[in-house]
């Protein structure tokens, strides 16, 4: 059998790809019109569940580039039972994340002991000015709606599936 020249062989590969693309469609999508759905674990943006936050500052301290700003104060809440003492609770005044600095590492979500921070795959929050990327707790709270449920694990795993708090 005579040897097929490499050039011809290569051209047949390219031609095969053209046929594949024309018949089966391209792998890319036209972004603003068609949207790809990111995987549930995708680190798009951090959402804040404000009720769970006790302004303990752990996330702010563990952040590798210190882009979380927290301010809070103590207030007295009404007692749980009638006749009890009023409880002292931490009220969150300010919770800002500067997404111009954020490295999307997820350490804050991981260290939060009260499950107040969640990743969501939401990614459409670009701003014309970098200073506008500083988002406050109202904006972070809005993203809680987009947080997907945690996926079940692959067989053989001993980890427990966590729950997302819903209002």
């Amino acid at each position: 059998m005579p040897k097929v020249p490499g050039l011809i062989k290569g051209l047949s590969v390219t031609f095969g790809e053209i046929v594949k693309t024309v018949t089966k469609g391209a792998d890319t999508v036209q972004y603003p019109h068609v949207k790809e759905v990111p995987v549930p674990r995708a680190r798009g943006v951090i959402a804040l569940h404000e009720e769970n936050c006790t302004s303990c500052m752990l996330c702010s301290r563990e952040c590798p580039d210190w882009c979380i700003y927290i301010e809070g104060h103590k207030t007295l809440a009404p007692p749980r039972r009638a006749g009890g003492k009023p409880r002292s609770v931490n009220k969150l005044d300010r919770f800002d994340i500067d997404y111009g600095l954020c490295m999307y590492c997820g350490i804050c979500v991981e260290v939060c002991p009260f499950e107040a921070l969640f990743w969501t795959p939401e990614f459409e929050y670009s701003e014309p000015k970098i200073a506008d990327l500083l988002h406050d707790k109202e904006r972070l709270g809005e993203w809680m709606e987009t947080v997907p449920e945690f996926e079940p694990y692959e067989g053989g795993s001993e980890a427990k599936v966590k729950k997302v708090p819903r209002p």
């Binding site: 549930p40 996926e151 079940p152 692959e154 980890a159």
Partner: peptide, 10 residues
Amino acid sequence: LKDDLPAGWI
């Protein structure tokens, strides 16, 4: 590791 594999990943 931080987390385990999600179902269906394999």
